[in-house]
Design a binder for these strands. Sequence first.
RNA 1: GGAGAGGUCGCCUAGUGGCCUAGGGCGCCGCACUGGAAAUGCGGUAUGGGGCAACCCAUCGAGGGUUCAAAUCCCUCCCUCUCCGCCA
Length: 449
Amino acid sequence: MSVGLQRLRAEPDVIRKGASDKGEDPALVDLALALDERRRARLGESDSLKAERNAASKRVGEAVRGGADPAGPEVAGIRASAAALGERIAALDLEITGIEAELEEAMLRIPNPADPDVPVGTAEDDVTVRTWGELLPRVAPVEGEVGADAAPGGATWVRLPHWDVAESLAIFELERGAKIAGSGFPVYRGAGAAMQRALIDFFLRTHTVENGFTEIWPPAVVNSASARGTGQIPDKEDQMYVVTRDDLYLVPTAEVPVTNLHRDEIFDAGALPVRYAAYSPCFRREAGAAGKDTRGILRVHQFDKVEMVLFERPEESSDALEWMVGRAEDLLRRLGLAYRVLLMATGDMGFVQAKKYDLEVWAPGVERWLEVSSCSNFRDYQARRMQIRYRPAPGAKPELVHTLNGSGLALARVVAAILETYQRPDGTVDVPAALRPFMGIDRILPPGT
RNA sequence: GGAGAGGUCGCCUAGUGGCCUAGGGCGCCGCACUGGAAAUGCGGUAUGGGGCAACCCAUCGAGGGUUCAAAUCCCUCCCUCUCCGCCA
C-alpha cells in the first residue's frame, strides 16, 4: 500500500492522471478498486462467521463451567458446528489473503502523483529554476596575478579535469583503490582525505548549529525490513551491496537508516517537525552504468554524503521542501561553487516523489553540470509504507506524516567541482575560504613542496 | 560463541486452555468536591479493518501449529538483560 486506499476510492481520477503523467499504467487504479471491493465483501463474511464461532466457543465454556460433560452430547453438538464454521472461515481467509496479495501488488505499482505545480513531461521538460555564480570557462585568460604567479599578457590556460589535478597533487588514488577493493572505490590521500573530513564537518556543523538539525550517525548497514521500508527492495535491489550471510544491506544513502528510525512509530502532537542531518558512506553497485563516467570520481561505488531527513506536518511539507533546498544551496554558495536548481518534470522525478529538485554544480574542467543534491517531498507515500504517523492534537487520531529528504551534500562530486573551480594556472588548488578552518591550510600544493 | 532469565495497554505489573470482553497501579484527559489548589471520588484513556449505526473482527515481540476455544500449550525466528569466553 502506498498511495492509500481511502484516497484511491475518494479521487481515482487524480491517481489515474498521476500515473499516466509518470508514464505508468493508469488501469492499475481500476484493478485495485475492483480488488478492494472484493476484499471488503469477503472480509465482511469472514468477520461475521468469526463472530458466530466466538459466540459458540463461549457457550462451550459456559456449559463446561456449569458442570456439563466436556465430552457429552450437549457440548459435542456445539463443537461440531463451530468446527464447521472454522472450515468455512479458513477457506474465506485463504481467499482474502490471496486478494490482499494481489491488491498490494497493484498498489505498489501505482506511483505517487506529482504535485500540481510540477511540469508534466520528460527530462527535456525539467525547469531551471535559478542559477547562481559565475560559470567559469575551461580555457581562461591568465590574468591579474601579481608577482611570481603572473603570466605574460594575453596568455591563456586550460582548466584540467579533476582527475588530472588529483594526480599531480596526489589527492586521491583510483588505481590503488581498485587494487585493494575494486574499481570505483577511491582512496583519498593527504589534503584529499583532509578535504573529505572537512566537508563532512562543515556540512554537519552548519546543519546542526545554524539550521536546527539533530545530528545522526547511523549504521552503514540495514536489515531487509528497513531496505523494504524506503523501497530499496524490491525496486532497487540491484543497486545495493548485500551481505547475504547476515541478511544485511550496505546503505546506498543515509536516507534508508535515518527514515527507518521512526518506522511504525507515532509522534506526539507537538513533536513535529523532526529534522535530522546524517553523515554516512554510501555504497552503490551502479549496475547498468558500466562504462559511464569511468574517469575520476563522478560515479563511484562508495562515496560520502550528508543527508537531510525531515518529518513534517502535512500542511508544512511544501514550505519545508523549499527551505531544505535553500539549506543545500547555502552550502554551495559558501563554497563558492556555481550551481543551478532544476525542478524535475513528472517523467524524470521517480516513482515515489511528489516533487523533486536537483542541484547541479558547474565543473569547468570537464565542462559539465554535476548533480550534488536531490531534494524531494514524498508527502505521505513513504510514511504510509513505513507507518510513520503523528497526532495532530493530544488524544487525536494518528495521521501519516510527510517525509522529505535531500542531500546536503554529496561529497565526491563536490570535491571534483572544487578541484576544477579553484585550480590555478600553476597547478595548485586554493582551499575555499569556508573550508580553511576545517582543513588548516589555504592551498593544496604538490607533494614535496 | 556458551549458559540462564525475560519480551503483556504510554510506563510498571497480574495473568499456566474457557467468568481475559486482558485485571491492578502510575501517568494523562474530563467531571465532581474547593475561594483556588492539594488530597479524594467518578468516568475516560491502544492500533488497524469492516459497517449508516448499534456493533463486529483482528492484534499480548514476529511467524507457523494444536484446539470448538490460545497471552496461556508446541515449533521456528527476532530482540532485551545477567554471567562466562573472545575482542577494537
